[in-house]
Computed example of a mutant assay.
Amino acid sequence: METAVMRRFYLFLSVVICNGFHLHGPSDPLIFQLGGSVMLPCFVEPPPPMEELEVEWKRTDSETLVHLWQDRESRPESQNQRYHERAHFFTEEIAHGNFSLFLTNVTREDAGVYKCAVYTKLDSDETLIEIKETERLIVSGGHVISAYAGEDVTLNCFVDSNIPPENIEEVTWKKMDEDILVLLYQESEVLTDSSHERYRDRVEFFSAEERNKGNFSLRMKSVRTEDKGLYICLAFSGALSDNTTVEVLQLGFSSIHIGIFVLCILGFVIGSLILGYLSFTSFKNNDDSRRALAIQCAHVLSPNITMFIVFILWGVTEGFVTEAATCSALNFVRILFLLWIALHLKTFQDYPHQLINRLAISLQFAVITLVAYLREYTSNHYTITICKMSFHTCIK
């Protein structure tokens, strides 16, 4: 009988005093750090009666039960295992209308929207609280690479961030010791034209799918001896930035290098020593025969053609395109110059004699001038282009 009277009294008290309730929570998302703790506020004024009070915390995306208060006590056996011993109530505050949830050891998977729902015999209400991880931008992957010339290598760079990939403003690869721009990713586009001529068409990122996962590793094809050095991968997003470095060292010689060395030896031994000796013997004996002329021509042609090929191969292997082109061209036109000063120039008659006389000097100067000015123009044009394309990186 007394119990029935008390229930009626609580019912009357609930109608008179409570007259419904409204839950309060933060309007803005709450920020957390990985491994830290976060308080999810949820409270009501005035406090509802404890009689048949039930408080339920759930995730809205999966309806996962985070915490339950029922029959005047917590029900840890009902909550999802992921939140076991991590989601807590302030038990002594329940009677004061404070149903806040304290979440510890926060993980990346905890980010999302939570619902605090309160039920009484007469009324119910709920509020939503969003928690999200503080913005981060962490670049990792630093390592050391040892490779042989001619091999393909990968320079690792991983961007760990909760920022959407399209909001990562820029990722830049640079060769630090020479301050050269290797490859630029800007506003969701890979700007291959921004690469220094030494790396153009030799470097690339992985697929767009990999970049969306934060993989901004650089794939470098046919690595050269000049590629040895320290590289830096820099990422920017608003006020956030980070970087990592990769060192390329111990570049060995490839089969092309060995071939170049062998050609140089053959050019020296055959072209300079053997043919040089035979040419000198012919001169000493005042030999004006066709055989002597053939030896003289071979003495001029052999080492220069050999070096012409060597410089072409060196340019392909090492990437010194301008230098290789210049030296190759000079070795080729040098043939005319040597014939011009040759002991047997008088043996050339009519048109060949005139051609050698007129072109030997002028052709060499023309080649030097053309290559020198072309290189200067290319360098200036590249500098202007890079400065226009990147506001974070301007190669001087």
Rank of each mutant, 00 (worst) to 15 (best):
E2F: 07
A4I: 10
F9N: 08
L13K: 14
L13C: 08
F21L: 08
H22C: 06
H22S: 09
G25H: 05
P26K: 09
D28C: 11
D28G: 11
P29Q: 11
F32R: 02
S37M: 07
V38Q: 04
P46G: 02
E51K: 14
E54C: 06
K58E: 06
T60I: 13
T64W: 03
V66R: 00
W69I: 03
Q70S: 13
S78H: 11
S78D: 11
S78M: 13
N80G: 10
A87L: 00
T91N: 13
A95P: 13
T107D: 14
C116R: 08
V118A: 05
L122A: 07
D123H: 15
E126D: 09
T127I: 15
L128G: 00
E130P: 01
G141L: 04
V144Y: 12
A147P: 07
Y148R: 15
T154G: 01
L155E: 04
S161W: 03
I163Y: 00
I163S: 01
P165G: 05
P165A: 14
W173N: 03
W173A: 00
K175P: 01
D177E: 07
E178Q: 15
D179K: 13
I180W: 12
L181Y: 03
L184A: 00
H196R: 05
Y199F: 10
N212E: 14
R219Q: 14
K228M: 15
S237A: 10
Q250K: 15
G252N: 08
I258D: 00
I258L: 04
G259S: 11
I260H: 02
I265T: 01
G267K: 07
F268G: 04
I274P: 02
I274W: 09
L275V: 04
Y277W: 14
S279Q: 06
S279E: 03
F283K: 11
D287V: 00
C297L: 15
L301Q: 08
T306G: 02
L313V: 09
E318M: 00
V321N: 06
A324E: 02
N331G: 08
L343E: 13
L355C: 13
I361A: 00
I368Q: 10
L370G: 03
Y377K: 08
S379H: 09
S379T: 08
M389N: 08
F391G: 09
H392P: 01
